[in-house]
Design a protein around this nucleic acid. Structure first.
Lengths: 222, 222
DNA sequence: TAGATTGTTAATCGATTAACAATC
DNA sequence: TAGATTGTTAATCGATTAACAATC
């Protein structure tokens, strides 16, 4: 295929490697910073140097989605930010349900980084009856039995799951039943759900384990 | 080389792929669950099925570190848990400094999953003078100028960095100056530090972006 | 123009999977 | 024993890097 400059038209017949999508978010983050710092254009070499990638990799990654650069010039930061947001789906705001209003959940309700990238937590859910009816930072807390109704009302497709590991699978199944399409899972368990439901998992203890491994097995680098 | 059953003796001359180390933590998590559920042994096939990997991959991953299985039997869960913890470095408890006691930082202070895997947050640091001198969940909050002294006193090697992105690079440099060896970075910026300092980064907004991409570009699976 | 930089193809490198002898 | 399962080698697959004609 020969993609033209301009809007990303959704998935084609080939599969984009997950590693490429991860780096896409990093490119976006750096581009937004470059923009804030007043840069109009950048290059695959500069972007790669900032992130520790080769220039070839930057160009190859972007080429999965279209032609965004100008030979001899590089990439216009503003244009590329717009293009990547469209690719990632964050050119529009996403209403999000937060499920599990414990310590972590409440911190996520107040997390500025979500809003900055176009995510809006519009409702929280918790099993604790004493929390239901109250609100955190202006976000109302509902009982889980109200999930389906609220999801429909706000057109919610994404949930952040921050319940204890012991409850995670069961609650996740309720999320699916309510029609949610994607789950950001903070519970330290492997969720088993229908394959059309997308899952991204973050296990905070595992992240620290990865760090201890790297510190203990420290060679020259890596 | 021909590693024998028993303790992992640290890094050899070859490099273990990062992907293997990530999966190692997932194996550990599943094995701990299997143990809790009363399983004495498991197999590469079962472990793979639980996590969505092939049996060959499970065996190959473990083979990087030694021989842990019994032909015809499989793996003894308890033994393998002990072995993986030693490999990851979490067979001992790690004292950790938490830097940036905002919403997210305070949630992390109370996060049970850290303690369960052997991490102890022993001190918090914040630039806000009104927080210094108080404590969260029994963890005292210090000014950043006390960092070096506290790090030395507790033998701290790891820090969790949960300060605003605008402050992250500068604070990270102070962490390095205080002698820390590993940083779990929650700030949405690329840290530039000496290469002997290990960094694991978690950008929560990026995790949500990965989810929106997966939901929007939903094919059969992936 | 000369210099810079892209998009893309081919070459290289590394990781995953398949296959199977050895073992319990 | 026969059946199950490992550890490891070879084959396959996929991702990264290098090279370069095309372009501004």
């Amino acid at each position: 295929m020969s993609p033209s400059r301009g809007p990303f038209r959704g998935s084609s017949d080939y599969q984009v490697p997950q590693a490429v999508v991860s780096r896409l978010s990093l490119y976006l983050r750096e581009l937004q910073r470059l923009l804030r710092d007043g840069h109009e254009t950048t290059s695959s070499t500069q972007l790669g140097r900032l992130l520790g990638f080769t220039d070839a990799q930057v160009r190859k990654d972007l080429a999965y989605f279209g032609q965004f650069g100008y030979p001899g010039i590089g990439y216009r930061c503003g244009e590329l930010v717009t293009a990547i947001k469209r690719i990632l789906g964050t050119d529009q705001a996403w209403p999000v349900a937060l499920v599990g209003a414990g310590n972590l959940g409440r911190a996520l309700i107040g997390y500025r980084g979500f809003q900055q990238q176009g995510f809006r937590i519009v409702a929280a859910f918790d099993a604790d009856a004493s929390k239901v009816g109250s609100d955190f930072e202006g976000i109302p807390v509902y009982g889980i039995e109200e999930l389906a109704a609220i999801v429909t009302r706000f057109g919610i497709r994404l949930a952040i799951l921050s319940v204890p590991g012991t409850a995670a699978q069961e609650v996740a199944e309720q999320l699916v039943a309510a029609g949610l399409k994607g789950i950001l899972n903070f519970a330290p368990v492997t969720l088993n759900l229908p394959e059309d439901v997308r899952i991204v998992s973050v296990d905070l203890a595992i992240e620290l384990e990865q760090l201890t491994f790297a510190v203990v097995n420290r060679l020259e680098n890596g």
